[in-house]
């Protein structure tokens, strides 16, 4: 019974599409997060002077502090986009598969 359902899903034309697209999308998101994060960590480890500079004439805030704040925002924004994307593209696909199988 359990095995039947697995076979049924595996044979469903939309299933392969779902797995492929979802894997690709989450990998792209993960890579983006990794690039932003490792960019931040590598810069502060190896180019600390870049982060130490003030934003401009008359500013105390440094490039590093502002970047840090932006990096915080980027994490939340990336997750928000991923959730939106999933709701819009993957959930309908998924619903279709579940409806056909059950």
């Amino acid at each position: 019974m359990q095995k039947d359902i697995v076979q049924q899903v595996l044979n469903h034309p939309k299933y392969l599409e779902l797995v492929k697209r979802r894997t690709r999308v989450s990998m792209i998101f993960f890579a983006t997060a990794l690039i932003i994060y490792s960019g931040f960590i590598l810069t502060l480890a190896y180019l600390p002077d870049l982060f130490a500079q003030p934003l401009g004439e008359g500013w105390t805030m440094s490039v590093g502090v502002l970047t840090g704040v932006l990096v915080v925002f980027s994490a939340v924004i990336m997750i928000a986009f991923y959730v939106r994307f999933s709701n819009k593209h993957f959930d309908p696909l998924l619903e279709e598969i579940v409806r056909d199988v059950e």
């Binding site: 989450s26 998101f29 960590i41 982060f51 440094s62 915080v72 994490a75 997750i79």
Partner: peptide, 19 residues
């Protein structure tokens, strides 16, 4: 600034968890 680094590290656990 050094303290900010920790906060960002803790926060970036979440994209990893999500994706």
């Amino acid at each position: 600034f050094y303290g900010i680094i920790y906060a960002i590290g803790f926060l970036f656990g979440w994209p990893v968890v999500m994706f």
